[in-house]
Design a protein around this nucleic acid. Structure first.
Lengths: 255, 255
DNA sequence: CGACACGTTGAAGATTCTCAATCCCAGTGG
DNA sequence: CCACTGGGATTGAGAATCTTCAACGTGTCG
Protein backbone atom coordinates (compact mmCIF):
# COMPACT_ATOMS: atom_id res chain seq x y z
CA UNK A 1 0.00 0.00 0.00
CA UNK A 2 2.96 2.24 0.48
CA UNK A 3 3.91 2.38 -3.17
CA UNK A 4 1.83 0.01 -5.21
CA UNK A 5 3.40 1.27 -8.39
CA UNK A 6 6.60 -0.65 -8.08
CA UNK A 7 6.03 -3.05 -5.27
CA UNK A 8 9.38 -2.42 -3.71
CA UNK A 9 9.20 -2.91 0.05
CA UNK A 10 12.26 -0.98 1.17
CA UNK A 11 10.35 1.91 2.59
CA UNK A 12 10.30 3.14 6.16
CA UNK A 13 9.70 6.15 8.31
CA UNK A 14 12.58 8.52 8.29
CA UNK A 15 13.71 8.38 11.88
CA UNK A 16 17.38 9.13 12.19
CA UNK A 17 17.84 10.48 8.70
CA UNK A 18 17.90 14.22 8.23
CA UNK A 19 17.23 15.19 4.62
CA UNK A 20 19.45 17.80 3.10
CA UNK A 21 17.75 21.02 2.06
CA UNK A 22 18.60 20.56 -1.62
CA UNK A 23 15.02 20.93 -2.80
CA UNK A 24 14.17 24.16 -1.03
CA UNK A 25 17.63 25.46 -1.77
CA UNK A 26 17.19 24.94 -5.47
CA UNK A 27 13.68 26.38 -5.56
CA UNK A 28 14.87 29.45 -3.70
CA UNK A 29 16.93 30.36 -6.76
CA UNK A 30 13.79 30.58 -8.84
CA UNK A 31 11.51 32.79 -6.79
CA UNK A 32 11.64 34.73 -3.57
CA UNK A 33 10.79 32.22 -0.90
CA UNK A 34 10.11 33.33 2.64
CA UNK A 35 11.69 31.52 5.55
CA UNK A 36 8.29 29.94 6.08
CA UNK A 37 8.10 28.77 2.48
CA UNK A 38 11.39 26.98 2.88
CA UNK A 39 10.22 25.42 6.12
CA UNK A 40 7.03 24.23 4.44
CA UNK A 41 9.06 22.59 1.71
CA UNK A 42 11.54 20.98 4.06
CA UNK A 43 8.73 19.73 6.24
CA UNK A 44 7.04 18.22 3.21
CA UNK A 45 10.04 16.01 2.61
CA UNK A 46 10.34 14.89 6.19
CA UNK A 47 8.02 11.92 5.80
CA UNK A 48 8.24 8.52 4.27
CA UNK A 49 11.46 7.71 2.45
CA UNK A 50 12.26 5.39 -0.38
CA UNK A 51 15.62 3.70 -0.68
CA UNK A 52 16.82 2.22 -3.93
CA UNK A 53 20.10 0.40 -4.24
CA UNK A 54 22.66 1.33 -6.89
CA UNK A 55 21.74 -0.16 -10.24
CA UNK A 56 18.14 -0.93 -9.23
CA UNK A 57 15.13 0.57 -10.90
CA UNK A 58 13.07 3.01 -8.92
CA UNK A 59 10.14 2.74 -11.30
CA UNK A 60 9.53 1.19 -14.68
CA UNK A 61 8.01 2.30 -17.96
CA UNK A 62 4.29 1.66 -18.15
CA UNK A 63 3.36 2.01 -14.51
CA UNK A 64 1.38 4.93 -13.12
CA UNK A 65 3.11 6.46 -10.11
CA UNK A 66 1.21 7.08 -6.88
CA UNK A 67 3.55 9.31 -4.92
CA UNK A 68 5.42 12.46 -5.79
CA UNK A 69 9.10 11.70 -5.26
CA UNK A 70 12.04 13.98 -4.72
CA UNK A 71 15.70 12.99 -4.72
CA UNK A 72 17.35 13.60 -1.37
CA UNK A 73 20.63 11.78 -1.81
CA UNK A 74 22.31 9.95 -4.66
CA UNK A 75 21.87 10.17 -8.41
CA UNK A 76 19.33 8.55 -10.69
CA UNK A 77 18.78 8.40 -14.44
CA UNK A 78 15.67 8.54 -16.57
CA UNK A 79 16.11 6.11 -19.42
CA UNK A 80 14.41 4.17 -22.16
CA UNK A 81 15.26 0.75 -23.54
CA UNK A 82 15.08 0.14 -27.30
CA UNK A 83 14.22 -2.98 -29.24
CA UNK A 84 17.78 -3.00 -30.56
CA UNK A 85 18.99 -3.55 -27.00
CA UNK A 86 20.40 -0.08 -26.53
CA UNK A 87 19.66 1.97 -23.48
CA UNK A 88 19.38 5.73 -23.77
CA UNK A 89 19.62 7.86 -20.68
CA UNK A 90 17.47 10.94 -21.24
CA UNK A 91 18.27 12.79 -18.04
CA UNK A 92 20.05 12.70 -14.73
CA UNK A 93 18.26 13.27 -11.44
CA UNK A 94 20.34 14.94 -8.76
CA UNK A 95 19.57 15.82 -5.15
CA UNK A 96 16.75 18.34 -5.03
CA UNK A 97 15.23 17.13 -8.30
CA UNK A 98 11.60 16.19 -8.61
CA UNK A 99 11.88 12.76 -10.11
CA UNK A 100 8.15 12.11 -10.06
CA UNK A 101 6.35 15.45 -10.31
CA UNK A 102 2.66 15.63 -9.72
CA UNK A 103 1.68 16.22 -13.32
CA UNK A 104 3.41 13.10 -14.59
CA UNK A 105 1.18 10.95 -12.43
CA UNK A 106 -1.82 11.41 -14.70
CA UNK A 107 -0.63 8.72 -17.09
CA UNK A 108 1.50 5.60 -17.49
CA UNK A 109 5.20 6.45 -17.56
CA UNK A 110 6.94 6.55 -20.93
CA UNK A 111 10.32 5.82 -19.36
CA UNK A 112 12.01 4.12 -16.42
CA UNK A 113 14.12 5.57 -13.63
CA UNK A 114 17.15 3.74 -12.32
CA UNK A 115 19.42 4.52 -9.40
CA UNK A 116 23.00 5.32 -10.37
CA UNK A 117 24.31 4.97 -6.84
CA UNK A 118 22.40 4.37 -3.61
CA UNK A 119 19.39 6.61 -3.77
CA UNK A 120 17.24 8.24 -1.12
CA UNK A 121 13.95 9.77 -2.19
CA UNK A 122 11.32 11.59 -0.20
CA UNK A 123 7.78 10.44 -0.96
CA UNK A 124 5.06 13.04 -0.83
CA UNK A 125 1.33 12.56 -1.16
CA UNK A 126 -0.01 14.64 -4.01
CA UNK A 127 -2.55 16.18 -1.66
CA UNK A 128 0.17 17.44 0.66
CA UNK A 129 1.94 19.13 -2.19
CA UNK A 130 -1.32 20.72 -3.31
CA UNK A 131 -1.83 22.08 0.18
CA UNK A 132 1.61 23.64 0.28
CA UNK A 133 1.12 25.18 -3.14
CA UNK A 134 -2.17 26.63 -2.00
CA UNK A 135 -0.43 28.38 0.85
CA UNK A 136 2.28 30.21 -1.02
CA UNK A 137 2.48 31.95 -4.33
CA UNK A 138 6.26 31.87 -4.06
CA UNK A 139 6.25 28.10 -3.95
CA UNK A 140 3.81 27.89 -6.85
CA UNK A 141 6.04 30.11 -8.93
CA UNK A 142 9.20 28.28 -8.01
CA UNK A 143 7.69 24.91 -8.87
CA UNK A 144 6.41 26.17 -12.21
CA UNK A 145 9.83 27.53 -13.03
CA UNK A 146 11.47 24.29 -11.97
CA UNK A 147 9.21 22.41 -14.37
CA UNK A 148 10.10 24.79 -17.19
CA UNK A 149 13.79 24.39 -16.55
CA UNK A 150 13.41 20.62 -16.66
CA UNK A 151 11.87 21.04 -20.08
CA UNK A 152 14.65 23.38 -21.17
CA UNK A 153 17.21 20.82 -20.03
CA UNK A 154 15.48 18.17 -22.10
CA UNK A 155 15.63 20.46 -25.14
CA UNK A 156 19.30 21.09 -24.55
CA UNK A 157 19.95 17.35 -24.44
CA UNK A 158 18.21 17.11 -27.78
CA UNK A 159 20.57 19.76 -29.15
CA UNK A 160 23.53 18.07 -27.55
CA UNK A 161 22.82 14.72 -29.18
CA UNK A 162 21.69 16.15 -32.48
CA UNK A 163 24.20 18.84 -33.25
CA UNK A 164 27.41 18.31 -31.32
CA UNK A 165 30.32 15.94 -31.82
CA UNK A 166 31.28 13.53 -29.07
CA UNK A 167 33.89 15.70 -27.28
CA UNK A 168 31.54 18.68 -27.10
CA UNK A 169 28.65 16.48 -26.01
CA UNK A 170 30.57 15.04 -23.13
CA UNK A 171 32.04 18.40 -22.17
CA UNK A 172 28.59 20.01 -22.09
CA UNK A 173 27.22 17.22 -19.92
CA UNK A 174 30.05 17.68 -17.45
CA UNK A 175 29.41 21.43 -17.37
CA UNK A 176 25.67 20.98 -16.86
CA UNK A 177 26.18 18.61 -13.95
CA UNK A 178 28.66 21.02 -12.41
CA UNK A 179 26.22 23.92 -12.45
CA UNK A 180 23.23 21.90 -11.31
CA UNK A 181 25.21 20.51 -8.40
CA UNK A 182 26.56 23.93 -7.56
CA UNK A 183 22.98 25.21 -7.29
CA UNK A 184 22.36 22.79 -4.45
CA UNK A 185 25.73 23.31 -2.80
CA UNK A 186 27.18 19.98 -3.80
CA UNK A 187 30.37 21.13 -5.46
CA UNK A 188 33.78 21.34 -3.85
CA UNK A 189 35.69 24.17 -5.41
CA UNK A 190 35.50 23.60 -9.14
CA UNK A 191 34.94 19.87 -8.79
CA UNK A 192 32.25 17.45 -7.78
CA UNK A 193 31.60 13.87 -6.79
CA UNK A 194 30.37 11.99 -9.86
CA UNK A 195 29.18 8.41 -9.45
CA UNK A 196 28.77 7.83 -13.20
CA UNK A 197 30.68 5.07 -14.94
CA UNK A 198 31.97 5.69 -18.43
CA UNK A 199 29.31 3.27 -19.60
CA UNK A 200 26.53 5.40 -18.13
CA UNK A 201 28.08 8.55 -19.51
CA UNK A 202 28.14 6.84 -22.90
CA UNK A 203 24.45 5.95 -22.64
CA UNK A 204 23.67 9.58 -21.89
CA UNK A 205 25.92 11.00 -24.60
CA UNK A 206 24.68 8.60 -27.25
CA UNK A 207 28.13 7.22 -28.08
CA UNK A 208 29.87 3.94 -27.37
CA UNK A 209 31.66 3.41 -24.08
CA UNK A 210 34.91 2.87 -25.93
CA UNK A 211 34.60 6.23 -27.58
CA UNK A 212 33.80 7.96 -24.30
CA UNK A 213 36.99 6.50 -22.95
CA UNK A 214 39.02 7.94 -25.81
CA UNK A 215 37.36 11.34 -25.54
CA UNK A 216 38.00 11.50 -21.80
CA UNK A 217 41.59 10.54 -22.42
CA UNK A 218 41.95 13.46 -24.80
CA UNK A 219 40.22 15.87 -22.41
CA UNK A 220 42.60 14.80 -19.69
CA UNK A 221 45.54 15.37 -21.99
CA UNK A 222 44.36 18.92 -22.63
CA UNK A 223 43.77 19.32 -18.90
CA UNK A 224 40.16 20.25 -19.48
CA UNK A 225 39.08 17.86 -16.75
CA UNK A 226 40.68 15.67 -14.12
CA UNK A 227 38.63 12.62 -13.26
CA UNK A 228 39.63 9.95 -10.79
CA UNK A 229 37.99 8.05 -7.96
CA UNK A 230 34.53 9.32 -8.89
CA UNK A 231 35.61 12.92 -8.57
CA UNK A 232 35.61 15.34 -11.48
CA UNK A 233 37.78 18.42 -11.16
CA UNK A 234 37.46 21.19 -13.72
CA UNK A 235 40.69 23.20 -13.61
CA UNK A 236 39.15 26.09 -15.53
CA UNK A 237 35.36 26.01 -16.02
CA UNK A 238 35.42 28.90 -18.49
CA UNK A 239 37.99 27.20 -20.64
CA UNK A 240 36.02 23.95 -20.63
CA UNK A 241 32.80 25.77 -21.46
CA UNK A 242 34.49 27.60 -24.31
CA UNK A 243 36.08 24.44 -25.61
CA UNK A 244 32.79 22.59 -25.84
CA UNK A 245 30.41 25.44 -26.68
CA UNK A 246 28.50 25.26 -23.42
CA UNK A 247 26.08 28.09 -22.66
CA UNK A 248 24.24 27.86 -19.33
CA UNK A 249 21.35 30.15 -20.21
CA UNK A 250 18.93 27.25 -20.49
CA UNK A 251 19.53 26.54 -16.79
CA UNK A 252 18.75 30.18 -16.05
CA UNK A 253 22.25 30.46 -14.66
CA UNK A 254 25.64 31.84 -15.44
CA UNK A 255 29.01 30.55 -14.30
CA UNK B 1 1.82 47.06 -27.46
CA UNK B 2 0.25 44.09 -29.09
CA UNK B 3 3.26 41.84 -28.78
CA UNK B 4 6.21 43.75 -27.45
CA UNK B 5 8.29 40.60 -27.32
CA UNK B 6 9.07 40.45 -30.97
CA UNK B 7 7.92 43.75 -32.36
CA UNK B 8 6.29 42.17 -35.38
CA UNK B 9 3.38 44.28 -36.50
CA UNK B 10 1.46 41.78 -38.59
CA UNK B 11 -1.30 41.33 -36.10
CA UNK B 12 -4.94 42.04 -36.53
CA UNK B 13 -8.37 41.18 -35.29
CA UNK B 14 -9.59 37.92 -36.68
CA UNK B 15 -12.55 39.01 -38.71
CA UNK B 16 -13.15 36.67 -41.58
CA UNK B 17 -10.89 33.89 -40.38
CA UNK B 18 -12.50 30.95 -38.65
CA UNK B 19 -9.99 29.00 -36.62
CA UNK B 20 -10.05 25.25 -36.90
CA UNK B 21 -10.91 23.35 -33.76
CA UNK B 22 -7.53 21.60 -33.60
CA UNK B 23 -6.79 22.71 -30.08
CA UNK B 24 -10.02 21.62 -28.43
CA UNK B 25 -10.03 18.50 -30.57
CA UNK B 26 -6.64 17.47 -29.35
CA UNK B 27 -7.37 18.25 -25.71
CA UNK B 28 -10.57 16.22 -25.91
CA UNK B 29 -8.43 13.13 -26.34
CA UNK B 30 -6.82 13.71 -22.97
CA UNK B 31 -9.79 14.24 -20.65
CA UNK B 32 -13.53 14.19 -20.83
CA UNK B 33 -14.47 17.62 -22.02
CA UNK B 34 -18.05 18.77 -21.98
CA UNK B 35 -19.54 20.52 -24.98
CA UNK B 36 -19.21 23.70 -22.94
CA UNK B 37 -15.52 23.05 -22.26
CA UNK B 38 -14.86 22.78 -25.96
CA UNK B 39 -16.79 25.96 -26.62
CA UNK B 40 -14.81 27.77 -23.95
CA UNK B 41 -11.59 26.67 -25.58
CA UNK B 42 -12.67 27.56 -29.10
CA UNK B 43 -13.90 30.93 -27.91
CA UNK B 44 -10.55 31.55 -26.25
CA UNK B 45 -8.84 31.30 -29.62
CA UNK B 46 -11.25 33.56 -31.42
CA UNK B 47 -9.38 36.74 -30.65
CA UNK B 48 -6.26 38.41 -31.89
CA UNK B 49 -4.26 36.47 -34.45
CA UNK B 50 -0.60 36.48 -35.32
CA UNK B 51 0.60 35.78 -38.85
CA UNK B 52 4.16 34.77 -39.55
CA UNK B 53 5.46 34.20 -43.05
CA UNK B 54 7.24 30.99 -44.04
CA UNK B 55 10.87 31.05 -42.91
CA UNK B 56 10.36 33.96 -40.52
CA UNK B 57 10.92 33.73 -36.79
CA UNK B 58 7.90 33.97 -34.55
CA UNK B 59 10.00 34.64 -31.50
CA UNK B 60 13.70 34.60 -30.68
CA UNK B 61 15.85 33.13 -27.96
CA UNK B 62 16.31 35.48 -25.01
CA UNK B 63 13.01 37.35 -25.13
CA UNK B 64 10.27 36.91 -22.58
CA UNK B 65 6.92 36.23 -24.24
CA UNK B 66 3.83 38.23 -23.30
CA UNK B 67 1.01 36.23 -24.86
CA UNK B 68 0.11 32.59 -24.79
CA UNK B 69 0.13 31.41 -28.41
CA UNK B 70 -1.51 28.44 -30.05
CA UNK B 71 -0.92 27.23 -33.60
CA UNK B 72 -4.07 27.41 -35.71
CA UNK B 73 -2.67 26.79 -39.16
CA UNK B 74 0.74 25.94 -40.56
CA UNK B 75 3.79 24.34 -39.00
CA UNK B 76 6.55 25.84 -36.88
CA UNK B 77 9.79 24.58 -35.39
CA UNK B 78 11.47 25.20 -32.06
CA UNK B 79 15.18 25.45 -32.68
CA UNK B 80 18.53 26.51 -31.29
CA UNK B 81 21.52 27.91 -33.12
CA UNK B 82 25.00 26.79 -32.13
CA UNK B 83 28.29 28.63 -32.23
CA UNK B 84 29.47 26.17 -34.85
CA UNK B 85 26.77 27.50 -37.15
CA UNK B 86 24.57 24.45 -36.97
CA UNK B 87 20.87 24.72 -36.32
CA UNK B 88 19.12 22.04 -34.32
CA UNK B 89 15.36 21.74 -34.51
CA UNK B 90 14.17 20.42 -31.15
CA UNK B 91 10.49 20.09 -31.93
CA UNK B 92 7.76 20.67 -34.47
CA UNK B 93 4.65 22.68 -33.66
CA UNK B 94 1.52 21.56 -35.48
CA UNK B 95 -2.01 22.95 -35.50
CA UNK B 96 -3.50 22.68 -32.03
CA UNK B 97 -0.10 22.90 -30.32
CA UNK B 98 0.61 25.36 -27.55
CA UNK B 99 3.71 27.03 -28.87
CA UNK B 100 3.96 29.49 -26.01
CA UNK B 101 2.36 27.94 -22.94
CA UNK B 102 1.71 30.03 -19.90
CA UNK B 103 4.43 28.52 -17.77
CA UNK B 104 7.20 29.29 -20.23
CA UNK B 105 6.46 32.98 -19.93
CA UNK B 106 8.11 33.21 -16.53
CA UNK B 107 11.57 33.46 -18.04
CA UNK B 108 13.60 34.41 -21.09
CA UNK B 109 13.26 31.81 -23.84
CA UNK B 110 16.07 29.32 -24.27
CA UNK B 111 15.20 28.75 -27.93
CA UNK B 112 13.64 30.37 -30.98
CA UNK B 113 10.53 29.46 -32.92
CA UNK B 114 10.46 29.75 -36.70
CA UNK B 115 7.59 29.28 -39.13
CA UNK B 116 8.05 26.36 -41.52
CA UNK B 117 5.28 27.50 -43.83
CA UNK B 118 2.84 30.39 -43.43
CA UNK B 119 1.72 30.30 -39.85
CA UNK B 120 -1.42 31.45 -38.07
CA UNK B 121 -1.37 31.59 -34.30
CA UNK B 122 -4.06 32.57 -31.83
CA UNK B 123 -2.87 34.93 -29.13
CA UNK B 124 -4.40 34.56 -25.70
CA UNK B 125 -3.94 36.72 -22.66
CA UNK B 126 -2.63 34.68 -19.76
CA UNK B 127 -5.49 35.96 -17.61
CA UNK B 128 -8.09 34.64 -20.02
CA UNK B 129 -6.55 31.21 -19.94
CA UNK B 130 -6.49 31.29 -16.15
CA UNK B 131 -10.15 32.13 -16.14
CA UNK B 132 -11.04 29.22 -18.40
CA UNK B 133 -8.97 26.84 -16.31
CA UNK B 134 -10.77 28.06 -13.20
CA UNK B 135 -14.08 27.12 -14.72
CA UNK B 136 -13.43 23.54 -15.68
CA UNK B 137 -11.53 20.72 -14.10
CA UNK B 138 -11.65 18.89 -17.42
CA UNK B 139 -9.74 21.67 -19.13
CA UNK B 140 -7.23 21.82 -16.30
CA UNK B 141 -6.61 18.12 -16.59
CA UNK B 142 -6.37 18.17 -20.35
CA UNK B 143 -3.87 21.03 -20.32
CA UNK B 144 -1.75 19.31 -17.69
CA UNK B 145 -1.73 16.16 -19.75
CA UNK B 146 -0.86 18.09 -22.88
CA UNK B 147 2.13 19.57 -21.10
CA UNK B 148 3.26 16.15 -19.96
CA UNK B 149 2.98 14.75 -23.44
CA UNK B 150 5.08 17.63 -24.77
CA UNK B 151 7.73 16.62 -22.28
CA UNK B 152 7.44 12.97 -23.27
CA UNK B 153 7.89 13.96 -26.92
CA UNK B 154 11.02 15.87 -26.01
CA UNK B 155 12.37 12.80 -24.23
CA UNK B 156 11.59 10.64 -27.23
CA UNK B 157 13.50 13.05 -29.47
CA UNK B 158 16.43 12.66 -27.12
CA UNK B 159 16.22 8.90 -27.53
CA UNK B 160 15.81 9.25 -31.26
CA UNK B 161 18.96 11.31 -31.66
CA UNK B 162 20.98 9.42 -29.11
CA UNK B 163 20.24 5.79 -29.79
CA UNK B 164 18.93 5.33 -33.32
CA UNK B 165 20.69 5.27 -36.68
CA UNK B 166 19.65 7.71 -39.38
CA UNK B 167 17.01 5.56 -41.13
CA UNK B 168 15.22 4.75 -37.88
CA UNK B 169 15.43 8.36 -36.75
CA UNK B 170 13.79 9.63 -39.85
CA UNK B 171 11.21 6.87 -39.88
CA UNK B 172 10.22 7.58 -36.29
CA UNK B 173 9.86 11.28 -37.01
CA UNK B 174 7.57 10.54 -39.92
CA UNK B 175 5.48 8.22 -37.75
CA UNK B 176 5.24 10.76 -34.94
CA UNK B 177 4.05 13.49 -37.27
CA UNK B 178 1.50 11.13 -38.76
CA UNK B 179 -0.05 10.31 -35.39
CA UNK B 180 0.01 13.85 -34.10
CA UNK B 181 -1.67 15.11 -37.24
CA UNK B 182 -4.20 12.30 -37.11
CA UNK B 183 -5.15 13.40 -33.60
CA UNK B 184 -6.27 16.74 -34.98
CA UNK B 185 -7.90 15.33 -38.09
CA UNK B 186 -5.26 16.53 -40.49
CA UNK B 187 -4.41 13.24 -42.20
CA UNK B 188 -5.82 11.99 -45.47
CA UNK B 189 -6.00 8.22 -45.38
CA UNK B 190 -2.52 7.09 -44.36
CA UNK B 191 -0.85 10.23 -45.65
CA UNK B 192 -0.46 13.85 -44.74
CA UNK B 193 0.60 17.21 -46.07
CA UNK B 194 4.19 17.85 -44.97
CA UNK B 195 5.73 21.26 -45.67
CA UNK B 196 9.20 20.23 -44.48
CA UNK B 197 12.18 20.41 -46.79
CA UNK B 198 14.83 17.73 -46.57
CA UNK B 199 17.07 20.36 -45.04
CA UNK B 200 14.64 20.97 -42.20
CA UNK B 201 14.16 17.26 -41.69
CA UNK B 202 17.93 16.95 -41.51
CA UNK B 203 18.13 19.67 -38.86
CA UNK B 204 15.54 17.80 -36.81
CA UNK B 205 17.12 14.38 -37.28
CA UNK B 206 20.61 15.59 -36.51
CA UNK B 207 22.11 14.38 -39.79
CA UNK B 208 23.29 16.14 -42.92
CA UNK B 209 20.81 17.01 -45.64
CA UNK B 210 22.72 14.86 -48.08
CA UNK B 211 22.33 11.88 -45.84
CA UNK B 212 18.61 12.51 -45.37
CA UNK B 213 18.31 12.43 -49.11
CA UNK B 214 19.99 9.06 -49.34
CA UNK B 215 17.92 7.62 -46.52
CA UNK B 216 14.68 8.83 -48.10
CA UNK B 217 15.77 7.32 -51.38
CA UNK B 218 16.23 3.97 -49.69
CA UNK B 219 12.90 4.21 -47.87
CA UNK B 220 11.19 4.93 -51.16
CA UNK B 221 12.89 1.94 -52.72
CA UNK B 222 11.51 -0.27 -49.95
CA UNK B 223 8.14 1.42 -50.39
CA UNK B 224 8.07 2.41 -46.73
CA UNK B 225 7.03 5.91 -47.69
CA UNK B 226 6.00 7.82 -50.79
CA UNK B 227 6.87 11.48 -50.67
CA UNK B 228 6.22 13.97 -53.42
CA UNK B 229 4.81 17.46 -53.74
CA UNK B 230 4.86 17.99 -49.98
CA UNK B 231 2.68 14.97 -49.38
CA UNK B 232 3.86 11.93 -47.44
CA UNK B 233 1.98 8.71 -48.01
CA UNK B 234 2.65 5.74 -45.73
CA UNK B 235 1.54 2.62 -47.61
CA UNK B 236 1.61 0.50 -44.46
CA UNK B 237 2.00 2.34 -41.14
CA UNK B 238 2.55 -0.87 -39.18
CA UNK B 239 5.32 -1.94 -41.46
CA UNK B 240 7.02 1.44 -41.24
CA UNK B 241 6.70 1.46 -37.46
CA UNK B 242 8.17 -2.02 -37.24
CA UNK B 243 10.97 -1.16 -39.62
CA UNK B 244 12.11 1.82 -37.59
CA UNK B 245 11.26 0.66 -34.06
CA UNK B 246 8.56 3.25 -33.49
CA UNK B 247 6.36 2.83 -30.40
CA UNK B 248 3.66 5.46 -29.93
CA UNK B 249 3.12 4.94 -26.22
CA UNK B 250 4.88 8.22 -25.39
CA UNK B 251 2.14 10.04 -27.27
CA UNK B 252 -0.45 8.16 -25.23
CA UNK B 253 -1.73 6.73 -28.48
CA UNK B 254 -1.74 3.58 -30.51
CA UNK B 255 -1.97 3.22 -34.26
C1' DC C 1 42.32 -17.19 -5.47
C1' DG C 2 38.65 -16.43 -8.87
C1' DA C 3 34.91 -13.70 -10.48
C1' DC C 4 33.42 -9.56 -11.99
C1' DA C 5 32.88 -4.80 -13.20
C1' DC C 6 35.11 -1.09 -15.06
C1' DG C 7 38.73 1.22 -17.60
C1' DT C 8 42.03 1.13 -21.40
C1' DT C 9 44.03 0.18 -25.91
C1' DG C 10 44.48 -1.55 -30.88
C1' DA C 11 42.68 -2.44 -35.34
C1' DA C 12 39.26 -3.08 -38.85
C1' DG C 13 35.05 -1.59 -40.60
C1' DA C 14 30.55 0.94 -40.84
C1' DT C 15 28.18 5.07 -40.81
C1' DT C 16 27.92 9.56 -41.78
C1' DC C 17 30.03 14.03 -43.31
C1' DT C 18 31.87 17.36 -46.48
C1' DC C 19 32.72 19.06 -50.84
C1' DA C 20 31.42 19.51 -55.35
C1' DA C 21 28.71 19.06 -59.29
C1' DT C 22 24.33 18.59 -61.55
C1' DC C 23 19.39 18.72 -62.15
C1' DC C 24 14.79 20.40 -61.65
C1' DC C 25 11.47 23.78 -61.04
C1' DA C 26 9.20 28.11 -59.98
C1' DG C 27 9.55 32.81 -60.07
C1' DT C 28 11.34 37.13 -62.08
C1' DG C 29 12.72 40.59 -65.10
C1' DG C 30 13.81 41.94 -69.69
C1' DC D 1 8.81 34.26 -74.65
C1' DC D 2 13.19 33.39 -72.73
C1' DA D 3 17.30 33.87 -70.08
C1' DC D 4 18.49 34.12 -65.47
C1' DT D 5 18.30 33.19 -60.61
C1' DG D 6 17.77 30.73 -56.40
C1' DG D 7 16.18 27.07 -53.51
C1' DG D 8 15.76 22.48 -53.05
C1' DA D 9 16.74 17.59 -54.54
C1' DT D 10 20.07 14.33 -56.16
C1' DT D 11 24.43 11.95 -56.97
C1' DG D 12 29.53 10.77 -56.60
C1' DA D 13 33.85 10.44 -54.14
C1' DG D 14 36.97 10.89 -50.53
C1' DA D 15 37.54 11.71 -45.65
C1' DA D 16 36.33 11.97 -40.75
C1' DT D 17 34.04 10.22 -36.92
C1' DC D 18 32.53 6.67 -34.44
C1' DT D 19 31.47 1.57 -33.73
C1' DT D 20 32.50 -3.07 -32.95
C1' DC D 21 35.28 -6.72 -31.59
C1' DA D 22 38.82 -8.34 -28.99
C1' DA D 23 42.22 -8.28 -25.65
C1' DC D 24 44.22 -6.92 -21.41
C1' DG D 25 44.92 -4.31 -16.93
C1' DT D 26 43.29 -3.08 -12.41
C1' DG D 27 40.85 -3.05 -8.28
C1' DT D 28 37.16 -4.94 -5.28
C1' DC D 29 34.80 -8.42 -3.12
C1' DG D 30 33.39 -12.90 -1.56
Amino acid sequence: MDQPEDGRPNTRRASGYVPGPSFSRKLAHYANLTMRDEQLLDFLLDGQMLYVGAGQDMIREGVRPVFVKIVMEGWAARYKMLENGRRQIVGFLLPGDLCIPQAIMTMPLDHSIGAINDLHCAMVQPGQLDAVEQESIGIRRALAMDAQISLAIQREWTVNLGARAAPERIGCLICELYLRLKAVGMTQGTGYFCPLTQIELAEAAGVSAVHVNRVIKQMRREDLIRWRDQFIEIPDPFRLARACGFRPNYLQMSF
